[in-house]
């Protein structure tokens, strides 16, 4: 049940920045979530509607940008992704020496305010 905790954190950040920019209302939130960072499901939207009642975020729409995990093989330099959601050695040369290029993101990128 960490979606509730995460939703509260999202609301706190959005409201803080909204108030700094004298927003009357926040209409949209753009979130970036890497495939390796955490599991966030649709219940975020459900909690969101509950906890933002009577705040400047009430009615705001959440937009999730999911960023796929990308690995770079340290042996052959090629980039590759998870296979069916699972980690795999380099599909080109089978090396397991790799670095994570992207997929750990988990941030609030921007908001639209009025």
């Amino acid at each position: 049940m960490h979606e509730l905790a995460i939703t509260e954190q999202i609301a706190e950040i959005a409201i803080r920045h909204g108030e700094q920019h004298q927003a009357q209302k926040i209409t949209d939130l753009y979130l970036v979530i890497g495939e390796l960072s955490t599991v966030v499901d649709d219940s975020v939207q459900f909690y969101w509607d509950l906890i933002t009642r009577d705040t400047i975020c009430e009615g705001a729409e959440l937009h999730f940008k999911r960023v796929p995990a990308i690995f770079r093989c340290q042996e052959c330099g090629k980039e590759y992704r998870l296979a069916d959601g699972e980690l795999q050695p380099c599909p080109f040369c089978q090396s397991s020496r790799m670095e994570i290029v992207q997929g750990k993101e988990f941030h609030l990128d921007s908001i639209i305010v009025e």
């Binding site: 950040i13 920019h21 941030h107 609030l108 921007s110 639209i112």
Partner: peptide, 8 residues
Amino acid sequence: PRKVTIVE
């Protein structure tokens, strides 16, 4: 409507 960039 205005966009506020946050990246937090």
